[in-house]
Design a protein around this nucleic acid. Structure first.
Lengths: 341, 341
DNA sequence: ATGGCAACCGAAAACGATTTCGGAAATTAT
DNA sequence: ATAATTTCCGAAATCGTTTTCGGTTGCCAT
């Protein structure tokens, strides 16, 4: 197993490595005849350029870093999938690292990626990240960053988000359209922009439909667990005996709600409609199946890579950098936990 | 943002790059005094060695490749998680690629990894992979490979598997212990060793308990879809009106079974017990909750990396390579879709 | 004072690929 | 035939780190 190098090809052909290199890259100052010779020998020896040498010389690794809060999560798995696909279509590979929703981890993982000289980083902020120095340091250091899903407005870079406000608005509107009048909302922790926006969308829909906003109808679930939904149900129906819909900011909690409602012999959707968010896999197999909002992770992953890729090219050509923010549209997926229109 | 290099440190200190390099690596032929000077300057300049140059010189990337059939899958997400954790604890990063259960993809992705000079590869065979030339080529080329989960006996390398036979045996035994006598088995496609072994374990348990094996009780589900389980139920109870348990080779199908049984007003577990396999997240939230076999993906990922790491060290020291096969124990998780012991 | 021996450091090659720049050969123009 | 271009190729520097192999010092012993 001897490695085939430019030098080897050069010496067997009696030319210089420079010529071989240029021939393979189709430089105009090499004759067709030589190019043919070089190409055919390179092919028959199955020459593959040494990526270490290329990286050292070209100062690029053709690798990007992807930081994910948690991988064992349907949405993020889909994002990873999209990123990997889009990246490999464009000659990039992806190193994945997990922040585990921890600020310290997030910083450390970014450093690991920098030490490996990744060409750019795709990042979804951890819930606990509250300052952005570590990210601005990247941007100042000319390492392109694209924030996806969990972003912050105070970081100046390209971003891909789903339009959470609009999505939550649509979901709430759907509930209203199917006759619901007293809609409780289970919202997430106070920090991430996503749950804030979903809350705002919910409120906006009430407003547009002239339903007075009642803040006692809003419940906070600080963790993302199934049990939280399960446990909140009793509280909700005790507080409001006439509640006719529960809109949860995530499917998992909505599933807990569904199960608890069934235990309490409350008929879904006849007595109470339930709307989730994210279109997790499990929403298809609850009973009744869960109406929800599709959160297109795969597409988001692809878009995130594309933004990064564009910035990479812009930087390479020394063109002025313009950051772009892409909003991905979502749609309500009506299933059996809500009434028909 | 100027890069700090050995040369820069050397020139400001008036020594050679060789000295700086050796000082930082604590070579014995550098005086303590110089070492202190070098170390402190390196620290204050936040010197980070250029990984490209290191890789080129040392011929190792400190990156490993991980090929996964599909990422959007609870088990494989966990594996990825375990691999990433174990790898970063040992100074390695992970490039993840997907084979999408395709033989062609598998080959191509391996090549991509090789071109990036990963130090080793973790691979779970795609269901469609039937020859192993591409893998043997790796091994011959001195690129260590560790097969995990979906392996083949005809490849000579280290492997991590769960003991599928034993696991399926235990699951079946559990059904028998709780009074089931006529147990149907939904098995997977014929290829992967895992579904073969699960089938064997099922058969073995019957045999040990003197229950005659009835091949008409075995149903094949070639795809891994929820619907398949859903659809098979009618067939099963038509074929065998007195079936009292269904053991599915995977949770997703078992979930389909559960839902169909409920629609048919068949009480689980009183009339029919249902046992899944994998302990997917969703098994905790079906109703009734699904008894299943825990398939410890995280641990498997960690172990797979560890095996690879060991081989890397062995190769570096030119010691003789011995391949290791690790079997990971599983356990039955009794929930409410089976009767109590 | 001379030989021997540590202790300490640096020159230089190497890892492969890329690219600039200049030079030789071949071609065209005068 | 000479001058002016092209056409084609190679020497060499470069990227940054590592490591071998000597080479200087200075020190001690004789």
């Amino acid at each position: 197993m001897f490695k085939v190098t430019l030098k080897k090809i050069a010496s067997t052909l009696g030319v210089s490595t420079a010529t071989v290199s240029k021939a393979l890259k189709d430089y105009p100052d090499i004759s067709e005849k030589t190019k043919r010779k070089v190409r055919s020998l390179a092919k028959s020896l199955d020459y593959k350029p040494n990526s270490f040498a290329q990286s050292l010389r070209n100062k690029e690794s053709k690798i990007i870093g992807l930081i994910i809060p948690t991988i064992v999560h349907h949405f993020f798995s889909n994002i990873l999938n999209g990123v990997i696909d889009a990246a490999s279509e464009n000659g990039y590979l992806v190193i994945t690292l997990l922040s585990n929703e921890s600020y310290e981890d997030e910083k450390n993982k970014i450093n690991l990626l920098l030490e490996k000289n990744v060409d750019g980083i795709l990042l979804s902020l951890s819930d606990k990240t509250v300052n952005y120095k570590h990210i601005n340091r990247l941007i100042d250091g000319n390492v392109p960053v694209v924030l996806y899903d969990k972003i912050s407005k105070s970081v100046n870079c390209s971003k891909v988000i789903i339009n959470d406000k609009q999505a939550a608005f649509n979901a709430t509107q759907y509930l209203i359209d199917t006759g619901c009048k007293k809609i409780a909302h289970i919202r997430g922790p106070l920090k991430p922009q996503t749950t804030i926006d979903r809350f705002i969308g919910y409120k906006k829909a009430l407003e547009v439909n002239n339903i007075p906003f009642d803040k006692t109808l809003v419940y906070v679930s600080d963790s993302l667990s199934f049990e939280n939904g399960y446990n909140l149900v009793l509280k909700i129906i005790n507080d409001h005996h006439d509640v006719d819909a529960i809109f949860s900011f995530t499917d998992l909690i909505a599933t807990g709600v569904l199960i608890r409602l069934k235990e309490l012999d409350i008929i879904v959707p006849d007595q109470i409609s339930v709307m989730g968010f994210s279109n997790w896999f499990l929403s298809k197999i609850t009973s009744p199946t869960l109406s929800t909002v599709d959160q297109p992770g795969y597409e988001m992953g692809r878009k995130a890579f594309t933004l990064l890729y564009n910035e990479l090219n812009i930087i390479r050509n020394n063109e002025p950098l313009i950051h772009e923010v892409i909003e991905i549209a979502t749609k309500v997926i009506p299933r059996n936990s809500t009434k028909k229109k």
